[in-house]
Structures are given as structure tokens and as C-alpha cells.
Nucleic acid binder design. Structure first.
Lengths: 243, 243
DNA sequence: TCAAGTATACTTGTATACAAGTATTATATC
DNA sequence: GATATAATACTTGTATACAAGTATACTTGA
């Protein structure tokens, strides 16, 4: 139906991905951006036609998105759930929960290697900002938190992260793309928060860690609504162009 | 290959399930029981032949089990991870984490309906014990905790639970089947713990809740190894019968 | 105009077919 | 005997085909 593929998801992140992954990534972005509205019923056949693939990868994608809680598989069609304010808060509940847990473990570990790794990622983030590369920045931002989680070698915490990651990634991606143009100064604050986070890990200062974690959330959460809306408008605009 | 289907997973729980779900459930039980050993490489074709279905439902099942972290999908074949002592501890870390979170929310809610629901489930558990029905007991036990989690209406906590549940269920199922024969007295203790749990929710007593939660874990965890071993022996025995 | 029943066009779940790629084994060459 | 190369038997990912079931629309009857 919609022949013009906008590719909301960065194409170069999909170099080695299967058709199923590609469909999932793109669909996820469209749902989270609001391009596909909450409540919409997705049909395997229509999606297959839209993405010019067979039903097999589409089914795979739908199963993935259902596990991520952004669609709901019903007897007839997949219903889009999407991300409302409530869901975003819930995601941050989970992040707060796991990252707090992770921190407790880190407090009993040697964190030299980790801190070094995080510093590197932070430098990357700075470079990304310098060149106004929102996608690269988002990638490094997500990687930052994943690196922390991976450090404690806890397969079930990682499992939770893996379920959360794609949605987080999409959300951050969309958010950063808007912000890097409109609210450039936000990024200095984000960087500062991450520096605080690293400091907290290095000094094993629990209160500092919680503080920087919450700051990070406030930073995102407070601005969620309007940013998200502007993104919606932006995408809707594109949509009209195509018709 | 192995034509004799042992049906480790209760068949009557699969009445309306798809072939994919059936394969996933049975495979999960075989992996967690140790019948399929950790490290084994599963082939889609072999599994399809084993379960007398096509590759489609098998692929679906493997994707599910990979999301549950008991197998790992690699370029060539799916590698069985299984449940070692480490994984079981990790699962309980997660349970402790989410149930603690849930409790905090419950403390700010009206819990009358929930407590009533839990009491009902507890009665069911008692009946199951009375008739030595390990499967029914396990079902109600899992339902008990799911009911608590559902009560706070938090879709992402539920998401975590949904990822954990099948593995938990299988593990409890196998564990209870052995215990109901060998260690009947365990069950009075389990019931008592659950009563404590309900009491904690009713009175919103955090310390009591944590205590009963930990007791529950100690109860399971301490006995995990030998129970699990005996289960392995039991299954291995069955295996030899077939050859 | 409305009700009931039938036909039609969709839906999912599963089986099968095929292509592209990878490991393994066998064969040929030194 | 060791090494390089070719043949084979596997692997996954995707497309397509089909069956069983469900909603929609249409027709028929009052």
C-alpha cells in the first residue's frame, strides 16, 4: 500500500539483519513515533505487502513486538499498543529497578575496566553531539547502559534488558533526533549526567548513582510529551507528502 | 528419532495451544529437567521430525525458548543453556526484585479483592496437596504469584513476569512432582509461607513480606540441587527404558 | 424495513519448497 | 602422509501453498 519507505530506523544498523528483524525494527519505529497509531489493527498480509516480504518474516516481527509489549496478538490481527506516558514511566520503573540492582553488584566488584569502557563511550557521545549525529548519539547512549548491565554477568538481568532495549532504543532515537535540532543545550546536561553516573560507579557512591539515574529520567521524562508530539507532527507531515 | 513422547508437560494444559506452543512447552520441560543436557545443539529439522510437525512451529518454539534464556540461537543450531544453580539464583533475583516492587505499589492500594483472590488460590493449593496432585499444586502456586503481580496493573512488570513464568512453571512442576512423593511435609511449610505472604499484603507489613519471600526462596533454593538431581535420575531412568 | 442464513473474503497456523550459505567429508595432488 | 580442493550434506531464512476457522457482506424471505 504505502510504497514510500521512510526508513525511520537507521538502515546501516540493519546490515546483517534478517528481513524479520528489518520489519520489526521499522514497524517498532513507526509505532513508537505514532506514525502507526495506537489501536490500529495490523494484518500479516497487509504488512507483508507493505514491506514487500512474505508472511514468514512478518510473523516473526509481530511475535517480537508482542514480546516487547508494543503490540498485542489477538485471534484476529495484531492490535497496536504503542507508548503512552504510562508505558514510558513503566519502562523507566524497570530501568530504575535493574540498574539499581546492577549497581549493588558493581559495588562489590572491580570496576576499573568498566569505568574505562564507559569513558570511551562517553567520548563517542561527545563526538556524536559535535557532529549533530543523533543516531550515533542514541546508539552510544543505549550502549552506555547496556555496558553497565553486562558488567555484572547476570543472564536474567540481561534478558530483561534485551526485552526493553529495542523499545528504549527507538524511543531515544526519535527523541534525540528532535532534540539535536531544537534543544541542543540538552545534550550538555545529558553528558554531565552520564559523567555523574560514571563517577558514582567509580566511587561506589550509591546516593550519587540514584541521583544521576533519577536526573536522567527527569531529563527525558519531563520532556517526553512535547518532544514526542513534535515527532508525531513531523511524521504526520511526511505522511501527507506521500498521499 | 525418539518416538516415545513422555509428555513431561501436562497435556491438559495444552488444550487450545498451537503446535508451536506445544513444542515449546515440552522442549522447555526436557531442557529444565535435564533430559536434554546443557550444551546440546538442537536442529530445527531433527526437532520437527521428533515432534512430527513442520519446521514452522519448531522455529517459533525455538524463538520463544531463546527469549526465555534457556537456549541460545547461533548461526548453526540452537545451543541448550538450561538451568544451572546460577540461573536459578538469577531467576529468584528477578522475582525478588519485581515482587518487592509490586509490594511497594500494593502498599498504596486497596488490597481487599486481591487478598480474597489469594485466599481462594491458597485453598486450591491445599486441596491439590490433599489429593497429591503436584501439577495442580504447581499451577496454583504460579497463579498465586501472577495474581499478585497482575494486581498493580503494570504492563512492563507483567512483561518481565511473562518471560520468567514458563521457566518458573516448568521448574516448580518438576520440583513439586518429586517432593510430593518424597518430602510431603515440605508442603505444609510452603502453605505456611504463602499464608505469611497474604498476611504481609493484608497488613502491608514490608518486613514480613520480605521475610516470607526469602523464606520461600530458601525453601526452594536450598533443596534445589538434590531435587533436581533426583529428577534427572528419574528422567534418565525413563530414557533407558525406551532404548 | 428487518431478520436469518448463506456466500465470500478475510484471518491464522502449519506444511512444504527453494535459495543461499556453511561445515564436513572425500578426493586428488604433492 | 599432509595439504588443497571439490563434492556433499547439512544449516538457516524466506516464499508459497493450503486448511480450518471467523467476520463481513449480501441475498433471500417475510
Amino acid at each position: 500500500m504505502d510504497e514510500t519507505k521512510e526508513h525511520l530506523y537507521p538502515i546501516k544498523w540493519l546490515t546483517k539483519a534478517s528481513a524479520g528483524d528489518r520489519v520489526a525494527s521499522e514497524l517498532r519505529m513507526r509505532i513508537i513515533s505514532g506514525k502507526i497509531e495506537s489501536g490500529t489493527i495490523l494484518s500479516e498480509n497487509k504488512l507483508a505487502a507493505d514491506f514487500a516480504v512474505s508472511r514468514s518474516p512478518v510473523r516473526e516481527a509481530l511475535k517480537t513486538l508482542a514480546a516487547e509489549n508494543i503490540i498485542r496478538l489477538e485471534r484476529m490481527g495484531a492490535v497496536v499498543i504503542g507508548l503512552t506516558e504510562k508505558e514510558i514511566e513503566e519502562i523507566y520503573d524497570v530501568r530504575l529497578l535493574i540498574e539499581t540492582f546492577v549497581f549493588e553488584r558493581l559495588a562489590q566488584m572491580n570496576v576499573n575496566v568498566l569505568v574505562n569502557e564507559l569513558s570511551k563511550i562517553l567520548e563517542m557521545m561527545k563526538v556524536a553531539i559535535k557532529y549533530q549525529d543523533a543516531d550515533e548519539f542514541s546508539y552510544q547512549d543505549v550502549l552506555f547502559h547496556e555496558t553497565i548491565i553486562r558488567a555484572i554477568d547476570h543472564s536474567y538481568m540481561l534478558m530483561i534488558w534485551n526485552n526493553l532495549k529495542p523499545v528504549m532504543e527507538s524511543f531515544i532515537l526519535l527523541s534525540m533526533r528532535v532534540r539535536i535540532k531544537e534543544k541542543y543545550e540538552d545534550f550538555t546536561r545529558i553528558i554531565k549526567n552520564h559523567e555523574l553516573y560514571i563517577e558514582a560507579i567509580k566511587t561506589k557512591d550509591r546516593t550519587l548513582m540514584i541521583k544521576s539515574l533519577h536526573k536522567n529520567f527527569d531529563d527525558v521524562q519531563g520532556k517526553v510529551e512535547d518532544l514526542w508530539r513534535s515527532q508525531q507532527l513531523l511524521v504526520k507531515g511526511e505522511e501527507q507528502e506521500n498521499d
